[in-house]
Amino acid sequence: MAQIKKTEVRDAILAAAFELFSAQGYSATALTAISKAAGVSKANLYVYFDSKLDILYTLYEPWMRARIARLEADIAQVPDSRGKLRTLIRALWRDIPSEENGFVNNIMQALSSALPVDQYRPTLVNWLEERITALLESMLSPSRLKIFHGTRIAQILIMALDGYAIHYHLRPKEDDVDDASIEAMVSLILGEPGRASRG
Rank of each mutant, 00 (worst) to 15 (best):
D178K: 11
A15F: 10
Y46M: 11
Y48H: 15
L85S: 01
D175R: 13
Q24K: 14
M64I: 15
A12P: 03
G191I: 04
A69K: 11
S41L: 06
A37D: 05
A154N: 10
V78M: 03
T58F: 05
F103S: 04
D118W: 00
P122E: 13
P122F: 00
V47P: 02
V186S: 03
D176Y: 04
I156N: 06
A37V: 02
Q155W: 01
I132V: 15
K42G: 10
Q24P: 04
I182E: 00
L92A: 02
I147A: 07
G39C: 09
I107T: 03
L188A: 11
L31V: 15
E183S: 09
L31N: 14
T29M: 07
A28N: 13
E137F: 04
R121S: 10
D50S: 11
E192S: 08
A73T: 15
D175K: 13
S22W: 03
E174I: 13
A28S: 07
G39E: 10
S113G: 04
P193A: 12
F148E: 14
Q24G: 08
S143V: 11
G150Q: 11
E192L: 06
A165V: 02
E183A: 13
K5V: 06
R90D: 09
L53T: 05
L111C: 14
N101S: 15
L31P: 01
G199Y: 09
